[in-house]
């Protein structure tokens, strides 16, 4: 379980996250929507310790992320992350991209790591591209590669930061399909997304972010069918 209490995050003077309270249970899929600059990416970075926080706590399976004694490298193995900008490692082939972390982080043997990598690449439908460099993959394929790379660490949670928003429209579907598959398999997921269709169909709950606070959080149905907050209504009428 991910438990966030009164999270405060500043960039210098800029108060980006202003008291976030949030709970994500095992197996739950939470979508995070909201305007650009409202702090959605920052929240994900804070959850896996890529950003420092200035107040409050984030606890993942009982481990406080920003506690000095926390082994972040270990904690991050339980949380896969997929970024908006495709960042497959360009100097490694698809299978090397996926096998690297199991090998050097989890200290798997080379053949074990390759096995894991193959399995995950098949999982995301890239079995034909094992020895191809990312530059030869489409954006959608690169994003699926990034998902496979994260899954190879056998994470408990997956954090998606607008995994489809840098993609050409015709490539969005294949990535969303992969995410939907993961959700069906029971993966716990936090998805920052601009894809309202995905948020509505796949997520259990939806959080609407506004200016560093969670303006409204509810079941997908409630958020989309009868949002309580005026700001939510306004946002949804704009994106629909």
């Amino acid at each position: 379980m991910i438990q966030i209490d009164n999270l405060q995050k500043y960039f210098g003077q800029l108060h980006v996250l202003r008291g976030i309270d949030l709970q994500v249970k095992k197996g739950e899929v939470l979508s995070v929507i909201g305007a650009s600059g409202s702090g959605k990416s920052t929240l994900l970075y804070c959850i896996n310790g890529l950003e420092q926080i200035q107040g409050g706590t984030i606890t993942v399976d009982g481990v406080e992320v920003h506690d000095k004694g926390t082994d972040l490298n270990k904690l991050r193995q339980s949380m896969g992350m997929v970024f908006q900008q495709w960042n497959s490692f360009p100097h490694l082939t698809a299978i090397e991209n996926v096998a690297l972390a199991p090998k050097i982080v989890k200290k798997k043997s080379k053949s074990e790591a390759i096995e894991i990598a193959k399995k995950q690449l098949v999982h995301v439908g890239l079995e034909e591209k094992l020895n191809v460099y990312p530059s030869e993959l489409s954006g959608g394929q690169q994003q699926r590669l990034a998902i496979a790379r994260a899954l190879a660490m056998d994470p408990q949670y997956m954090l998606f930061d607008e995994a489809t928003s840098a993609l050409d429209p015709e490539l969005v579907g294949e990535v969303l399909e992969t995410m939907r598959l993961l959700a069906e398999e029971g993966m716990t997921m936090i998805c920052v997304t601009h894809e309202m269709g995905f948020a509505r169909d796949v997520s259990d709950r939806v959080a609407f972010f506004n200016d560093g606070v969670i303006e409204e959080i509810d079941t997908a149905e409630n958020i989309f069918e009868n949002p309580k907050s005026e700001l939510t209504q306004k946002f949804l009428s704009k994106v629909r």
Partner: peptide, 27 residues
Amino acid sequence: IPETQLKAARSLGMTLWHAYTRILVPQ
């Protein structure tokens, strides 16, 4: 090199040393 390369490496649990020697420096 985009900053997200380092973030991606760290998000996989790589140490700073590994992120540099395996991901950034080769590039």
